[in-house]
Simulated scan of single mutants.
Amino acid sequence: MEAVWILLAFVLLVVAATVLVFRIEDLSRLDQGDYPVRPAVPGDGQQRVLGRLRELGESARGLKGKARLLALRRHMDGLSEGLTLASEFRHNDAPRGEWVLAPGVDHRRRVLYIHGGAWVAGSPRSHRAITDRFSRIANAAVFAVDYRLMPEHRFMDGVRDCRRAYTWLLEHGPDGPARAEFMVVAGDSAGGSHTLALLAWARDTGLRQADAAVALSPSTDLTLTAPSNRDNIATDPLLGPVFGGLAKIPLPVLWWGTWAAFRVPPTSPVASPLRGSLAHLPPTLIHASSTEMLLDNARRYAAKAREEGSPVELHTWAGMVHVWHIFVDLLPEAEAAFEDIRDFLARVEATTGARGRRN
């Protein structure tokens, strides 16, 4: 009986500590918005994409630990192999990354691109299908930052790499020192999280703010309290098989585990930009799929940003895979998404009077 009382006291202590430490605000009020969904037409391309996702899972089957992670990274780096890409890819040492330069683009116009991969995988090479297209539609020099990944490095090391790249990019182009005339920050998934957090950091530190931002299927809240984190497990063929099992773990346990892994609490705006101030941010475009686990992360961010007066647009496509943009060679919806980004950037320039010539 004494052991039972000790266990009960321990559980109550953990619960009290969780409530006291995390103080997680209920953001369910942000789930009430009605967002139009753009239709998608099922075709052979979607089946081929699903086949590629199965290959991704097979690449690490039977492996554990570091071997599994390395296999995943190798497979992701091969995603852009075999594609016909128009851009020049130029390595850069400090900050580490690569320039992506479509023919004839204006080097005074720049895009910082932050790749996804759950903070443990991905690279500038894995996302060349996206950065190549970004350079063309933005008529800009794209810098894909090669930020440090977990678990070899701390989460904050990657954050600092992105901040350093942004600060440097404001004053440096692919040909040397030169001030940017039009600046965009963009990223997908985990890189979308870094993108949104970077905007708030630039605001708070008094740096020149980006003229615009684009976040593709972004992670915005590591507390995992949004409904789609659980409701869309079965309909997300990429994130569902990898992260769906987390739904069986109580949220307080996940919060403590996230803090241990990231060394920042899941409520920190650095890791969960939704949890910080979203006032006074630049025009931002968010893309999400109606069936992905991170759908409500995007919806909540857009709703809160609007509450706080920041111009954020959320455009949703029906039934697409997480970050479908990377499959631009297979999906007409990916092509449509890039055209949507092109139109958004043109509207931003027309509204704000940002400088820089366009094609």
Rank of each mutant, 00 (worst) to 15 (best):
M1E: 14
L7F: 15
F10T: 13
D26I: 10
Q32E: 15
V41A: 14
V41Y: 14
V41P: 05
Q47P: 10
R52L: 10
L53D: 01
R54N: 14
G62K: 03
G65D: 03
R68L: 00
H75Y: 13
M76H: 06
G78R: 01
S80N: 00
E81Y: 11
G82E: 02
T84Y: 08
F89E: 04
R90V: 09
P95F: 05
G97V: 06
E98D: 07
V100M: 05
R108C: 01
V111Q: 01
Y113R: 01
H115R: 14
A118T: 15
A121G: 08
P124K: 09
P124R: 12
S126C: 11
R128M: 10
A129G: 15
A129I: 15
R133S: 11
F134N: 09
S135R: 00
S135E: 07
V142Q: 05
D146C: 03
D146W: 05
Y147R: 01
Y147F: 13
M150L: 02
H153K: 00
D161N: 08
Y166K: 06
T167K: 11
T167I: 10
L170A: 07
E171Y: 03
P177S: 10
E181D: 11
M183Q: 00
V184S: 06
S189D: 08
S189V: 00
S189T: 10
A190H: 04
G192Q: 06
S193L: 11
W201H: 10
R203W: 02
D204M: 06
D204F: 04
T205C: 09
R208M: 04
A212M: 06
V214Y: 12
S217M: 00
P218A: 02
L224C: 10
P227Q: 10
N229E: 13
R230Q: 08
D236E: 12
L238G: 03
P241S: 02
G245H: 04
L246P: 01
A247N: 07
K248L: 14
P250Q: 03
L254S: 11
W255G: 05
W255A: 00
W256C: 06
W256L: 08
R263F: 08
P266A: 08
S272Y: 01
L281C: 09
L281H: 00
P282H: 00
I286E: 04
I286L: 12
A288G: 05
A288Y: 01
T291E: 08
E292W: 04
M293V: 02
M293H: 02
D296P: 03
N297W: 02
A298D: 08
Y301I: 08
Y301P: 04
A303W: 00
R306G: 14
R306M: 13
E307C: 12
V312M: 11
H315Q: 15
A318W: 10
H325I: 02
F327A: 08
E335S: 15
D340W: 07
F344L: 05
A346V: 10
E349G: 15
E349K: 11
A350W: 04
T352W: 10
G353M: 08
R355Y: 02
